[in-house]
Design a protein around this nucleic acid. Structure first.
Lengths: 233, 233
DNA sequence: CGTATCATTGAGCTTAGTCAAAAAGTGTGG
DNA sequence: CCACACTTTTTGACTAAGCTCAATGATACG
């Protein structure tokens, strides 16, 4: 059960980062290989053989789909503690890329994980839970895309990030994403993301320190969204 | 994927309708209770105890979320062959309602299904697959909501329905949904849905027989979407 | 046969997309 | 450390798409 520190493929330096985290596949940590990724580096590619399942230890990753018109859409955002790469078929259905430099990803051989799950009902339940977590993220994103105005979308995105990245303090968020990434996640243009953030700042709903750090000043206004987004004359 | 169109929705003998279908929980059919539902009847309610998992035998159901501003969003569409009601916690995270009159839903006791899965790796895999199917539907909807214009959204919605309801003929779709439901699924207004359909019909991309039956005339135009939706002057 | 729901169409207005350019960071090599 | 190139972010002006309000047709159902 206890993972040893001798099996890391690249270097053992990252292993403690994995071991420090409590996650559903804890018992499989000895099978894991840990890899640091560069910005925009592809971790697994669409239609490629689904040989591994992955776990984000540090940083962030994005699940991307490229459209016929060249537009990119981000259909999932993977943050520390999230798994990805589970799929029904034998190929990945979309590609995943590291968002920030130095993103740490652990990789487990899929076949072996599934074989172990056949003999371990507890593990099987946990795999099911991992799939349901991904479903839950997807639904959350659907709810955000379903909002009416861009300011509301950006607002609920900030709240989602604050909740998912919360390190105790839920009022300060350091976004791992660029404006472009946010735009592709929310399915709006970069300019609109920028304008929405400016708008929220001007209204005193959020405060910006640099481009990546957001402080939530008026959480109620963000949550209501409607009222804040609707001009009352 | 044969829908049992001769089903005795009136006679009350629904069991053969379930048994006629091949699905991953086949071995549990003896545990199932089958219930016919009225239009808009709630099948399971948000925050209610998650005692059952469900399977759509006939008809259609929608997973609904109500927003603070009174707006409704449909975050999943359940068609014959789809399961729903799996959840991580002990309560359903959203409510599900029957869309069409006479929708047939089979209900399996969740605890017993999960207990059986602990002893049956094959069943455990199938439950995992069911969760991944739901994830796949959610991603598909994300891709639709991510499209730029309303005509594109409606177009890809039609294609999705044609694929999911295909009873051999993939060029003719009978929508189980009203325009309002489509609007809430695509997160656009009813008027826009109506206008988009009219637009597609005027351009000869689709043909309408009544309000619910659509014939796909020019599939390429629907799939490209971009070109069809962009006015070249 | 009337009534409620659903669907379509029109007019005006707001929002967000596009194109364009400036400003602010970021990193690299001299 | 600075200069330079490159990327990211912001802002502006214009345009077009879709929402809202409103009214009219069409369908379904009792």
């Amino acid at each position: 059960m206890r993972a040893n520190t001798t099996t890391s493929a690249i270097t053992g330096d990252y292993r403690h980062a994995l071991e420090a985290r409590a996650h559903p596949l804890k018992s499989l940590d000895t099978l894991a290989m840990i890899r640091p990724c560069h910005r925009s580096q592809e971790i697994c590619s669409q239609d490629g053989p689904a040989e591994y399942v992955y776990y984000v230890v540090f940083g962030a990753a994005r699940r991307c789909v490229l459209r016929a018109d060249g537009r990119r859409q981000i259909v999932d955002l993977l943050l520390p503690g999230n798994f990805f790469g589970f799929t029904g078929g034998d190929a990945y259905d979309s590609s995943v890329e590291a968002v920030s430099e130095g993103t740490l990803v652990a990789r487990y051989p899929r076949r072996r994980v599934e074989a172990l799950a056949d003999a371990d009902p507890e593990l099987a339940r946990e795999l099911r839970q991992v799939a349901l977590d991904a479903l839950s993220r997807s639904r959350a994103q659907l709810l955000i895309l379903g909002r009416v105005t861009a300011v509301e979308k950006v607002g609920s995105f900030i709240l989602e990030m604050a909740a998912r990245l919360s390190d105790g303090n839920t009022d300060r968020v350091v976004l791992p994403l660029s404006r472009y990434d946010i735009a592709d996640y929310l399915a709006v243009s970069v300019e609109t993301v920028s304008r929405s953030l400016t708008d929220l700042r001007n209204r005193g709903v959020i405060a910006l320190s640099g481009t990546r750090t957001i402080r939530i000043v008026d959480r109620d206004a963000l949550e209501e969204g409607e009222r804040a987004g609707t001009r009352l004359h």
